[in-house]
């Protein structure tokens, strides 16, 4: 292994070595595996809900976002939004939705990879998974802003509705509607995955840092 690669991948350890202190060396990959499971399962669960309440919708209207799709009363909400000139809901974040599952898969690979990298570079690999839940919300808020601010000026009610931003979390008001947005179980699971990854990385670093430092010291002494 070239010096550069060995710096990136960090010190290799033998199976006997691992067996001698299983807790120290096996715990981080195990936690990373759990984090990946959580992330995979989250893809099947809703990341975000919005309920729209209005007098003439006694049951409310529902929107549910998954990593890769938006479901619920999309058609009805689009139908109502056309009066204020809002673009169709499915025009929002179409790239993100198309890429969503691939991104998650990429993150799974990276997190798997991180377990094999015994240097500080491991952080770089898990960074997307760490930031994913936050990124999801930021992106969502961006699209809510974008849709609320790009209203068709020729729409029937364009003159009576000013640009607006429905909050990505919490309660908002637009026309006769009250919007109640909340994170879904998928998002919470992604957060748990993120947290688990961070912890795993901490233990990972704690396990390998002495070995890494020793490796550098050995290299320097050669």
């Amino acid at each position: 292994m070239s010096p550069f690669l060995s710096r990136v991948f960090g010190p290799r350890v033998s199976p006997e070595f691992v067996r001698a202190d299983r807790m120290r060396y096996s715990l981080p990959p195990l936690m990373l595996s759990l984090a990946r499971i959580a992330l995979v399962v989250s893809v099947f669960l809703p990341y975000w809900h919005m309920t729209l309440e209005a007098p003439q919708y006694p049951e409310g209207l529902e929107l549910t976002a998954y990593v890769n799709q938006l479901v619920g009363d999309v058609r009805e909400i689009d139908g109502l939004n056309h009066y204020i000139g809002m673009r169709k809901l499915n025009d929002a974040a179409s790239l993100e939705r198309a890429m969503g599952v691939w991104m998650v898969i990429a993150m799974l690979f990276l997190v798997e990879g991180a377990a094999l990298v015994h240097s500080r570079w491991a952080l770089l690999l898990v960074l997307p998974a760490l930031l994913f839940p936050l990124g999801f919300l930021v992106d969502l808020q961006y699209w809510l802003y974008s849709h609320g601010h790009n209203l068709d000026p020729t729409a029937p009610l364009s003159s009576s509705v000013k640009p607006f931003v429905p909050p990505a979390l919490g309660i908002g008001n637009i026309g006769q509607f009250r919007t109640i947005a909340s994170a879904g179980t998928g998002w919470y699971l992604a957060c748990a995955s993120s947290l688990l990854t961070a912890l795993a990385l901490f233990f990972h670093r704690r396990a390998y840092k002495p070995l890494y430092d020793r490796m550098l010291a050995e290299k320097a002494s050669i």
Binding site: P46, T64, V67, N68, Q69, V71
Partner: peptide, 8 residues
């Protein structure tokens, strides 16, 4: 992968 949400 593409989870299909339950019917509306």
């Amino acid at each position: 992968a593409a989870p299909q949400a339950p019917p509306t």
